[in-house]
Design a protein around this nucleic acid. Structure first.
Lengths: 159, 159
DNA sequence: TTCCTAAATGAAAATGATTATCACTTTCAA
DNA sequence: TTGAAAGTGATAATCATTTTCATTTAGGAA
């Protein structure tokens, strides 16, 4: 949990200041949870973890912090169809592998995959360049998801 | 897919029956709106149009109809980040062009693009095959979206 | 065609994630 | 150190979507 060689603290401090945001205990904790945790947490899951660390943190701070983390492109928000947002770090200094998601439309299970990512990224960056030119869009990121039935959900039935 | 005569009403009647759903006025109207209308409508927009055609149709029916249209893979649901679901026909007998979306994170404008689609689809189907094998997932569809700032939203500011 | 029953429906209430409000607290640059 | 601006938590408000339930309807059977 705790970083010892103090680069742990600082890499994102600069980012916060750069965007004009202050560094607060709540924000440190929320980001710390995202850094140290499993993927795609919901706001409530983050709140529960944060609250366990420091009961002074409220739901509001979690949502507001997530918003600015998204704005700074440190975090991505996903919709896996279960009615709540899911948040995870974008790849960054922590060396997170770029990945996409496989979503089961029946049980909402999500699998991260990194297979074929290189090809995808290559094609996407080409596409991105083309779209940027044609539509004069400043593209910041993309989303790819596959939907279907997972192992458990399609075994048995025939389709 | 072979259909041409009596295409107006019937091509999807069979689909409904096949899934065990009855054909009702409300469902006909909702599907009709999706077929005849601009893209990515919200449930409320569909409701308003449907209600204008037949005031007996309620919001509930719109949502329920959309659910089964999605289940039958006649319709796709999208999340463009404005807090409401957006619905549009999947490509089908109507010859809708397969396309993906470019979403402005500032004003939520959505641009449909078909450029590079062939390459994308080719890569995706390759990826899909690989993922199906590796994770034993039965993939039914995919989602690709690019996010960024549109023309209007990034002109002026420098980033 | 008439009947019958499961399926479908609308109105209204409930739900649940997210957002706004507001008085109080904290950060950080001067 | 200090004070203005930014951040905060508790609570209420919002608002898209779902559930409930009494009533109606579709469509196969008779």
């Amino acid at each position: 949990m705790l970083e010892r060689h103090r680069r742990g603290q600082s890499w994102w401090h600069g980012k916060f200041s750069g965007y004009g945001y202050k560094i607060t205990a709540g924000r440190e904790i929320v980001l710390g949870i995202l850094v140290g945790s499993e993927k795609h947490l919901s706001a409530e899951e983050i709140y529960i973890k944060a609250h366990a660390i420091n009961p002074a943190i409220g739901m509001t701070t979690v949502y507001r912090t997530l918003d600015i983390l998204i704005e700074m492109r440190l975090v991505n928000k996903f919709d896996f169809g279960d009615g709540r947002g899911r948040y995870e770090l974008t790849e960054g200094p922590k060396g997170l592998r770029h990945h996409h998601h496989l979503v089961c439309t029946s049980c909402n299970r999500v699998i991260d995959y990194t297979d074929f990512i290189d090809e995808e990224v290559e094609l996407l960056s080409r596409t991105e360049k083309g779209l940027t030119g044609k539509y004069n869009f400043k593209i910041s990121h993309h989303l790819i998801q596959f939907y279907g039935l997972c192992d458990k959900c399609h075994s048995g039935r025939e389709n």
